[in-house]
């Protein structure tokens, strides 16, 4: 027990009361999204509002998944293919980050990189750069390269803002691993690369998982870049399609909610699965600078 804790009984009650508030604040809205997604719109409009839905239905999900015809089925039909696109893009970017990004992070952690201070600064700046300023350039450049409306284009664009994060996190993580470990491997006759792959990487699991999960989550959730660069039918990712659901006219909120909940589920589950490593990796990366 932390000696900083409140000890008297009144204090304990207060702590639990505050915990309830915090819990409601954190998960209440998300749970309500789920509740609306299994409700009928007419019950959401009722006054007074019933907090426990009087009727439960999967109709909204049936609509979103294309099992029932309705007027916005055209938009709904984009959800599953775009989910696949999201998966492909997020996975590809994650793989690039875990190979290129971690190696660069290792280099920063162990070697005297030329202009280290400057390049670290540049890295930091890239991390803080408004991605939106790059979009007009991507728009024209990708057009010239034939990368517009391709998943490759999105992967490239996403690397621009995920790599700095990964390098930063991994640099900090590698710094927590004693350099003696590499040295002993070198003594055993490994070269630098072998030492990195055989000795350092295997003990960097938590860092890798954190960087990977984090990258995946960023890509899964990215909206603006995909919205502008990949407009052609079948080339875009999930967030623009969900935003498109919201922009449908004459559509019930309950249907939008079910599409939103469905789209959020993978990232939420991923983050919850890896939460231990994620917290550890991210805090190491950020706190250590």
């Amino acid at each position: 027990m932390k000696p900083g804790a409140l000890e008297r009984r009144a204090g304990r009650t207060l702590v639990y009361a505050l915990l309830v508030v915090v819990t409601l604040w954190l998960v209440g809205p998300f749970i309500w999204l789920f509740v609306t997604s299994i409700s009928y719109q007419r019950n959401l409009l009722a006054r007074p509002l019933a907090l426990v839905p009087p009727e439960v239905t999967l109709d909204n999900y049936r609509m979103v998944l294309g099992m029932v015809r309705f007027h916005a089925e055209g938009q709904a039909a984009k959800i599953l293919p775009s989910m696949l696109n999201s998966l492909v893009v997020a996975t590809a970017v994650t793989v690039v980050n875990l190979t290129v990004g971690t190696t660069a992070g290792y280099a920063y952690a162990r070697f005297r990189v030329p202009m280290k201070t400057f390049s670290l600064f540049a890295l930091l700046f890239t991390r803080m750069l408004p991605t939106v300023v790059l979009i007009p350039a991507y728009f024209l450049l990708f057009k010239a390269l034939g990368l517009q409306n391709t998943l490759t284009g999105l992967v490239l664009a996403y690397c621009s803002f995920t790599l700095p994060f990964t390098i930063w996190i991994m640099k900090a993580y590698f710094e927590t691993i004693p350099a003696d470990l590499d040295k002993s491997a070198l003594v055993d006759g490994c070269n630098r690369l072998q030492a990195y792959y055989r000795v350092v990487l295997p003990v960097s699991g938590p860092g890798l998982v954190a960087a990977g999960a984090f990258t995946f989550m960023l890509c899964w959730n990215e909206f603006i870049v995909a919205q502008i660069l990949n407009t052609k039918l079948g080339t875009t990712t999930l967030p623009p399609v969900i935003a498109g659901m919201n922009a449908q006219i004459n559509i019930d909120y309950s249907v939008i909610a079910s599409s939103g909940f469905l789209s959020a589920l993978p990232a939420v589950l991923l983050v919850l699965c890896f939460q231990k490593y994620l917290v550890q990796g991210l805090t190491t990366g950020s706190v250590k600078g």
Partner: peptide, 16 residues
């Protein structure tokens, strides 16, 4: 639970 609001895409945050 802390990670839930943070792991949602802002589009979903808005919808919610």
């Amino acid at each position: 639970l802390l990670l839930i609001p943070w792991s949602l895409s802002r589009i979903v945050v808005g919808l919610l």
